[in-house]
Amino acid sequence: MQYSAEHYGQDILKITEKDICYSAARLFFAYGLGNAMFFPMSVGAAAVLNPDPPAPAHVFRLVSQYKATLFFGVPTLFGQMLIAQEKLDKENPGAPHALQTLRACPSAGEALPPDLYHKFVERYGVEILDGPGSTEMLHIYLSNRIGAIKPGSSGQPVAGYEEKIMDDEGLNELPVGEVGNLWIRGRSSLRYYWRKRDKTASTVIGEWINSGDKYYKDADGFFFPSGRADDMLKVGGIWVSPLEVENCLREHASVMECAVVGAMDDENLVKPKAFVVLNQGFAPSPELEKELKTWVLDRLAKFKYPRWVVFIDSLPKTATGKIQRFKLR
């Protein structure tokens, strides 16, 4: 805990005794444990603990009431906050928003779409610091920094942690720009899984942890997510990242959120299938389905476009906001 608090809490967030932390994730999640307990305790800061679910109305109320300076959220919640804010802006034009006291919003749980980052910064004037973490590493080990953000990326290594991109055999480190498996090393890592020998053997490789995430690194040392290893799609013999297709779809005005999974076509070949939740003011139709397919075709390689678009009311998610793709397959 001390290791993570020093390297992420203090080095990345610059947390001090003057900060007031509010976390959407509860203390029984590793993410919430750091956000609301050992980060603030490490410097004598305050934390807001509240039993209400982290719905946008509660977030607005608690941040405003307690003058929170750090709000730890997840991409799904940030998107819901923007939708709720749009409604508030229509009801009270020109009224100040409730997040005036925030200086940064760390985000984890799933990759933050670039368009969501830009919309949030434009409306609230506060940066979202996206970065992956895990129970195996206790907290976040890659992160964007305040004033040094590449939207769509997970940032750069947190001090005290090393990351590398490995091939599927775990023998060779891959060059810049090539998608592979993200391995992490740091002193906050787990030793083993309780009574799960095979899981331990596939995850703990000496001092390194195989995260199970697909990533690539750019020339500036920023790491970009391509999805979970078991979420990747092989279409026509070429790997396709669901996140790339999802980010493209989200740029369309009609799409509030979406998830892409693999599905079999008539020839029993895997093709992308998109599940889409529409923004207010848009209704499902064959014309919109065709428009969304064309939208992706015009922006990505042909084999990446979704062969099916299914409109649904909401996406299945975990308590921390991660999309449960297995329920859509």
Rank of each mutant, 00 (worst) to 15 (best):
Glu6His: 09
Ile20Asn: 05
Cys21Lys: 02
Tyr22Asn: 13
Arg26Leu: 12
Leu27Lys: 12
Leu27Thr: 15
Met37Pro: 01
Pro40Glu: 13
Pro40Leu: 04
Met41Arg: 05
Ala46Phe: 03
Leu49Gly: 06
Asn50Cys: 14
Asp52Trp: 11
Pro53Arg: 04
Ala57Ile: 15
His58Tyr: 09
His58Arg: 07
Arg61Cys: 15
Val74Lys: 01
Thr76Arg: 14
Gln80Trp: 14
Asn92Ile: 03
Pro96Val: 11
Arg103Tyr: 03
Ser107Gly: 04
Pro113His: 08
Phe120Gln: 08
Tyr124Leu: 08
Glu127Tyr: 12
Glu127Arg: 00
Leu129Gly: 08
Asp130Leu: 02
Tyr141Gln: 02
Ser143Thr: 06
Arg145Thr: 02
Ser153Phe: 01
Gly155Arg: 12
Ala159Asn: 09
Leu174Asp: 02
Pro175Gly: 00
Gly177Asp: 04
Gly177Tyr: 00
Glu178Phe: 01
Val179Gly: 05
Asn181Asp: 01
Asn181Trp: 10
Trp183Gln: 10
Leu190Glu: 04
Tyr192Trp: 14
Tyr193Glu: 11
Trp194Phe: 14
Arg195Phe: 10
Asp198Tyr: 04
Asp198Leu: 14
Ile205Cys: 06
Asn210Pro: 02
Lys214Ala: 13
Gly221Ile: 15
Pro225Val: 15
Gly227Asn: 02
Met232Gln: 12
Ser241Thr: 05
Pro242Phe: 07
Glu244Lys: 11
Leu249Lys: 01
Leu249Asn: 00
Gly262Met: 02
Gly262Glu: 08
Val277Ile: 08
Gln280Tyr: 00
Ala283Ser: 14
Glu287Met: 13
Leu292Pro: 06
Leu297Asn: 15
Leu300Ser: 04
Lys302Asn: 13
Phe303Pro: 11
Arg307Asp: 11
Val309Asn: 09
Val310Lys: 07
Pro316Trp: 07
Gly321Ser: 08
Lys322Ser: 00
Gln324His: 00
